Simulated scan of single mutants.
Amino acid sequence: MNAVISPCNQYRYRLDREVAAEGKVIAYFGVNPSYADASIDDNTVIRMRSFTLSHQGKRFIVGNVFSYRSTNVRKLASTNDCFGLEHKFYLNQIIDEADILVPCWGSRNKLPQNLRQHLDSMLRLLLSSGKPVYSFGLTATGDPRHPLMLAGSTKLIPWEYKPTCLTI
């Protein structure tokens, strides 16, 4: 178990978990991290562990559209910096290390309006990586579903472009 957290403890740049001896490395990308760290899992990380095992993964990495740590996504609107100094470095590192990329941030409607374009930027980054991009399906807004509310039997499916989600 490992996590890269800023010295001020306000940003988590990546979270890693080993779950099996063999398999693929799956990278999940949510909106923003909460309290999970090198020794503590939150409910989303617990679900990601289960999904990684059921999809023959050996390890998973968690990255986020924003690195600011909060259990309330609306707090992103009131912070001066949603990303932190090392956000881009670690996002690129996660993408390089992963075999499969899984955006899974849920509906964009939970985000403040002025931050929603960052979801599209993240999706463009993932799709331009040349790596396989999968999701657990799409929300009504065309965004990738969040793993926390899904049945354990939910399968990853190849990403399909939906114009309601990605504006170029």
Rank of each mutant, 00 (worst) to 15 (best):
S78H: 01
P163Y: 07
I100G: 00
P158I: 03
H87Q: 02
K75Q: 15
C104V: 03
V73S: 01
C82T: 05
S67C: 07
P163S: 14
S70V: 07
T154K: 01
I95N: 02
M149V: 10
R59M: 12
T164Y: 13
G137C: 06
D99I: 06
Y68P: 05
R108K: 11
I61K: 02
Q117W: 13
L125E: 07
T71S: 15
V133G: 04
F136E: 08
L123H: 13
S153A: 09
E97T: 04
P147C: 08
N80K: 15
V133K: 15
E86I: 05
E160G: 05
D120W: 04
L101G: 05
G84M: 10
N72T: 04
F136M: 06
G106K: 02
L76P: 02
S67H: 00
L76C: 06
L126G: 04
L85K: 12
E97F: 11
K110L: 13
I100N: 07
G84K: 01
M149Y: 12
L138T: 01
L138E: 10
S135G: 02
F89D: 06
Q93G: 11
L111P: 00
N72R: 04
Q117S: 15
F66H: 04
N114T: 09
L123M: 15
G63D: 10
S78Y: 05
N72S: 13
R69Y: 10
S153R: 11
N109Q: 14
T139V: 12
T139E: 03
K88A: 14
L127R: 06
G142N: 02
I157K: 03
M122W: 05
E97Y: 01
K131P: 02
Y90V: 00
C82Q: 02
W159N: 01
I61L: 15
P158T: 07
Y161D: 13
L115C: 00
L127A: 11
E97L: 11
L123N: 13
A151F: 09
L115T: 08
L138R: 01
I94M: 11
P132S: 08
M122R: 01
S67G: 00
L76R: 03
E97H: 06
T141K: 11
A151Y: 06
P163D: 14
S67L: 00
I100A: 10
I61Q: 11
F136D: 01
N72Y: 06
W159M: 05
S153D: 12
A77V: 03
K88M: 08
E86D: 10
Q113F: 15
I100E: 00
C82E: 07
M149I: 08
P112V: 08
K131D: 04
K110I: 00
L156K: 04
